[in-house]
């Protein structure tokens, strides 16, 4: 972002380029553009570029000065590696479950009349505006051994009740899924609303049953939304801290919690920085995966055409 704003400043010393810059700087538009752009450039430099660069620097700085990859080796081995894998696992589980539930929800809403659809969307999205802390405690109250869910299950004499629904992976997944759901529903709903239902009528007129209609017409049309929703919720999950910390057990420690622990308890900034950079890289990897998926989709279509 900052790079593109700064881009016009040339590194070349060629006279032609120099005179072009001078001419460009003489123009009113360029000067007022630079003036208007300056605050945001400064803002981004101070609050975005500088912290990231300093984090990068911290993550490779040795205890006694000099550069080292020690912190990365540390972050990617032993218990820390396990935490990283846990984070990936929880993110994958959450994004898959929230996309499946989000798909069903969004589909149901997209079939409602506009007024009802708006109302239901409001109900789905409003919790998102409530503090995640409050929501998480809400879940804790609901899911505890003597919480509403378990009391009902016990009263119904469900075998095995009360279940352990907190301080384990189930608890974390329930919590994070509820946080991600508004995103996936919103994304999928927008895509589904854009699908021309008459295409399904066209498919029916040619003899397609419901299953074929869904598989060959509806699903391909909403597929981009599914990919987007999966990757987005995966990325959001990667750096998510609160719910896993409050609703998970020791085995559900995620990278964000580990960073918190290193900084707040061990005052170990270098290790924390390395973990942060790894999260950042994973996020970029997720985004690249999204682009890759799109490219594969496009080329598959090309091949299908050939």
């Amino acid at each position: 972002m900052a790079g593109s704003v700064l881009a016009p400043v040339p590194a070349s010393t060629a006279p032609a380029a120099k005179s072009r810059v001078r001419r460009s700087l003489r123009s009113r538009r360029t000067r007022s553009g630079l003036l208007n752009g300056a605050p945001i450039v400064v803002y981004m430099l101070v609050l975005f570029v500088y912290p990231i660069l300093s984090t990068l620097f911290l993550s490779v700085k040795g205890v006694h000065g000099g550069l080292t990859l020690h912190w990365y080796a540390d972050a990617l081995s032993g218990a820390n590696l396990a935490v990283l894998l846990t984070t990936l696992r929880i993110s994958a589980e959450t994004s898959l479950i929230s996309v499946v539930i989000g798909f069903l929800l969004a589909y149901a809403v997209s079939r409602l009349r506009p007024l009802w659809a708006g109302l239901v969307m409001l109900i789905i999205v409003v919790p998102h505006f409530i503090s995640a802390l409050v929501r998480t405690y809400g879940w804790i109250i609901l899911l505890g051994d003597h919480g509403v869910v378990n009391s009902v299950l016990v009263d119904l004499h469900v075998p095995g009740a009360p279940f352990q629904l907190l301080y384990n992976e189930i608890g974390v997944i329930i919590g994070t899924t509820s946080v991600m759901l508004p995103y996936t529903v919103l994304l999928l709903y927008a895509v589904m609303r854009g699908v021309d239902r008459r295409l399904l009528a066209a498919a029916a007129s040619m003899g397609a049953g419901r299953l074929v209609m869904f598989r060959r017409v509806y699903l391909p049309l909403v597929a981009p939304g599914l990919v987007n929703a999966t990757v987005l919720s995966f990325i959001l999950c990667l750096g998510y801290y609160l719910t896993p910390a409050l609703m998970g057990g020791a085995r559900q420690t995620v990278v964000a919690a580990l960073i918190d622990d290193e900084v707040m308890k061990q005052n170990q900034w270098n290790g924390a920085a390395a973990l942060g950079v790894i999260l950042l890289v994973l996020t970029f990897a997720g985004l690249s995966l999204l682009r890759l998926a799109r490219a594969i989709g496009a080329s598959a279509r090309q091949r299908g055409a050939a």
Binding site: D196, R198, L199, A201, A202, A203, A204, S205, M206, G207, A208, G209, R216, V217, P220, L221, R301, G304, A305
Partner: peptide
Amino acid sequence: PQKRGLGFVFQQYLLFPHMTVAENIAFP
């Protein structure tokens, strides 16, 4: 509709946008 086996041409064409021309025609 799908059990009647009739053909239908719509005013809005309603070709499947994610398929090529050949795939559209191949569909039925």
